[in-house]
Write a protein that binds this DNA or RNA. Structure first.
Lengths: 109, 109
DNA sequence: ATATTCAATGCCAATATTGCCATTAAGCCA
DNA sequence: TGGCTTAATGGCAATATTGGCATTGAATAT
């Protein structure tokens, strides 16, 4: 049975660009840290535990995707979430992880 | 101000593995096509418009992430969703895209 | 048995992502 | 001004992802 795409191709490209920005452990950690507050790059760097330049690039990825925005305050830069729909995403990831655990246990049994 | 991660590091790695599986236009297209039905590899191949082997690999990625499961039926293989939490994810992506459009328009003005 | 169809895998080249170092840029203070 | 702090950028090597071709394997039909 022939399946038609629900949307034109570029729409999936655009969606994937957002999804890609979400597809890295450090970036997930950063986004979660930004829940309900803004945080400076220095604190995010300490949180992530990578080089400052690395964190800066992760932030650039998130910003480019439209997920966060920044605010300069003197010599510091504060980032905060630009979207409020991430909780559902975390929940979904956790659901999948829990389900995978269950599947794995079933295999071992 | 010192920020503590809410979860241990491996948890973010695990989450990112799921997120990575979602981070490709063809895989997004496939997942959407599997909403409410199972579809054989042949039809998914036609849908995506890539080589059959390429689609097969995308399906392997989705399966490895625990997002889909497969069922053999003779010479064909049918894939279906293993999770039911994707709608929220689509909505979130669309929200971000819509917001980005708005931002872009504001910049042009 | 042979041919045919559908799907998965091996291989490989092209491309993209990541991370750190070094450097640059900008703001602040003495 | 010069020194210090914070963040962004350029360069580059290591690694990962992607996509197609060719092949393999499995099920079915002739």
């Amino acid at each position: 049975m022939k399946i038609r795409p629900r949307h034109p191709r570029p729409r999936y490209d655009a969606r994937a660009r957002i999804a890609k920005a979400l597809a890295h452990p450090s970036r997930l950690m950063i986004l979660e840290a930004l829940e309900n507050r803004e945080v400076c790059v220095c604190d995010l760097t300490e949180l992530v535990g990578a080089d400052q330049s690395t964190v800066s690039k992760h932030l650039a990825v998130l910003k480019q995707a439209g997920l966060v925005e920044d605010r300069k305050a003197g010599v510091m830069v504060f980032y905060k979430l630009k979207v409020c729909c991430l909780q559902g995403f975390w929940d979904c990831l956790e659901t999948v992880l829990a389900q995978n655990l269950k599947t794995q246990r079933a295999v071992l049994r």
